[in-house]
Design a protein around this nucleic acid. Sequence first.
DNA 1: TCAAGGATTGACTGACCAGTCACTCTAATT
DNA 2: AATTAGAGTGACTGGTCAGTCAATCCTTGA
Lengths: 180, 180
Amino acid sequence: MNQRQKQIAEAAISLFLKDGVGVSTAKIAQAAGVSNGTLFNAFATKQALIDAIYLRAKSEMLGALTYATGASFDREHLRKNWCDYLNWARSNPSHREIMHLLLESGLASEAVKAEIDEMAVPHAVWFNDALERGTIRGPNVEYIVKLAFFHLDLVVSQELQGQDEELAFEMFCQSIGLSK
Amino acid sequence: MNQRQKQIAEAAISLFLKDGVGVSTAKIAQAAGVSNGTLFNAFATKQALIDAIYLRAKSEMLGALTYATGASFDREHLRKNWCDYLNWARSNPSHREIMHLLLESGLASEAVKAEIDEMAVPHAVWFNDALERGTIRGPNVEYIVKLAFFHLDLVVSQELQGQDEELAFEMFCQSIGLSK
DNA sequence: TCAAGGATTGACTGACCAGTCACTCTAATT
DNA sequence: AATTAGAGTGACTGGTCAGTCAATCCTTGA
């Protein structure tokens, strides 16, 4: 993504979060300080813009999780990833929010969702190995991964810190059977 | 909601779930087998239609939870409410899905969301009393309630049954510190 | 049988939308 | 200074949208 694309994407993110995903391309271009035509020079379609925003936010997030691949699954490593996510989410609040908005409203295309799933494979494997070895429990990997992100997002959106944040981590550990 | 309104609302729900919330009122009217004008006789605006759908689904769901108010908070009662929700969700899959879609995409108006919160007060109190008495733990009531519904919706969307479904309940109980 | 009045219809309106394209501007090269 | 290439522009287009309204239909009760 070049400078112009970033500039338009950031304007789009602000407007999407403020006024919903129905915002017109004209308003996005205006907010970015470029003309209507320039927006379509940078992104072929509105869908391409949405996909680019989603892909960037999600890969940025996955890139922030530093300790997953290959490491053994224990409380310490899980906690590190937990903190990595929180740090990323707190440094990039709008990117975390837009990620959710685009996913939940079903506007991210299937192609880009598949691309993301591909990028998340190492993390899924990390959880899956632990599940198969009996280190943790749960109906399936997807359940556990989704549960983890749900806790994390609740911590971020409720702005929990200190003891409350640790309690959230503890609750997640207890639910997957990972005792102290 | 009268017969005509129900007829239009059901058509709208199907289309929203199939093609997204951007579906035009004209298509909704057609699917309901009425004219464009009749739709606007039944609902003053598209927003009113969306709000009515959201309100109906959510109050239907809350009405299905039979054991909350006033009862003591223990595993048995929690389990009963848990099953009540699952039964409702499985009997009304589209109503559960539309509830989520309208909430997550931010299309339900603030007014109707507040109305729902009002209706959910007894259930919130039930959890809150347990939290204050130390029967369960968590950063706050909202956290616990959202977590409960998250587990439930994952159970429904993953179509978990039998042991897997019980495991999900067990995971939730463990996380809020409600042991066997 | 017929009058009254509420429900229903669908063509219509003005607003708005994503995307196009002929043109302009800018800056590097000759 | 002249040429050129590529980025930027914004008026414009074909189409869709939510919502309106005059006309029609249907039911009820006298």
